[in-house]
Write a protein that binds this DNA or RNA. Sequence first.
DNA 1: GGATGCATGTAAAATGTTACATGATTTA
DNA 2: TAAATCATGTAACATTTTACATGCATCC
Lengths: 167, 167
Amino acid sequence: MTEKPLTDLEGAVLAEIARRGVATSYAVSRSFAASPSEFWSGSAGAVYPLIKRLLARGMVTAQADADGKRARLDYRLTDAGKTAMEDWLLDAKRASGMGFDPLRTRLAYMELVDAARRKSFLDDVRTISADFAKTSQPPPARFGEQIHKSWLTARSQWLAKLGFMEK
Amino acid sequence: MTEKPLTDLEGAVLAEIARRGVATSYAVSRSFAASPSEFWSGSAGAVYPLIKRLLARGMVTAQADADGKRARLDYRLTDAGKTAMEDWLLDAKRASGMGFDPLRTRLAYMELVDAARRKSFLDDVRTISADFAKTSQPPPARFGEQIHKSWLTARSQWLAKLGFMEK
DNA sequence: GGATGCATGTAAAATGTTACATGATTTA
DNA sequence: TAAATCATGTAACATTTTACATGCATCC
């Protein structure tokens, strides 16, 4: 019985726990909420049940924090969890998918408005993107920081080359 | 009472109907299913109810096809629908968001595996991406085709520059 | 010691996927 | 005319968001 492969959110949650070694649902939730990508809200309603499902599937262990007064569960990856996480992480086929890009989606329909409004829109996007890239995140400790920033830069350059849109 | 803004899928569906002038739910469904982006499946279960919601909100009109033997509804944008679609399309702030990228998400956790496996993964992604970009779509009729292809190219170039990942 | 925010969740509602049902149309 | 495919949906299920509930800790 082949295990159902992890969803992207499940994979990312396991990876986040792996990075931390030990993590509570709350800590994972905060991580996703703080990410520069707004795609996953990191809401408690998503993360707590998801990690409980991972527990039921044997991907993580739960340990009650003895010290604390308040109920609090520390999660760690099991061997099965580590394997599943790596299978997700190194899945080159899935990684090569296009995902969802709110800009790309709109650009595909830009023909529906006149050139003047297209231009105004693209100018605004450039301004907002440039501003966003400027706000320096504090600790560029890990790959993640560099990835997000360099990606924004790359998208800006891509956008600059889409001359045919402005005609 | 300010209308709730359109979701990205709703906006894209309205834009698709606008592009066609008249469209059935089935036609919209096929469009999304055929898109090179695999993010929205274009399943009937998503599209038919979504367009019914748009109808209830006055964004589209429904007209039964008199000619056909079989029930069949042709949808057209209303003025309100056109306005809402343009508000969605030209929303530069939302367009500037990062969306979801299955590659970027994984790259942010690449530190969790050793350099050899990282390299192997990145090689595979490059191969798959190059192959995908090679398969030429038939009709480059509209912006959409050029957008998707040029985006894949841009992402490949971005990836090529991420030297620090391979160390 | 009351207000504010941190931490841990659950509940209700919305949205999307997969699977199914069913009638019409084409094709072999 | 039987089989396959097109077309139009609905139903059951899973996932995620938004809102809510509640207890602990801190700070004013």
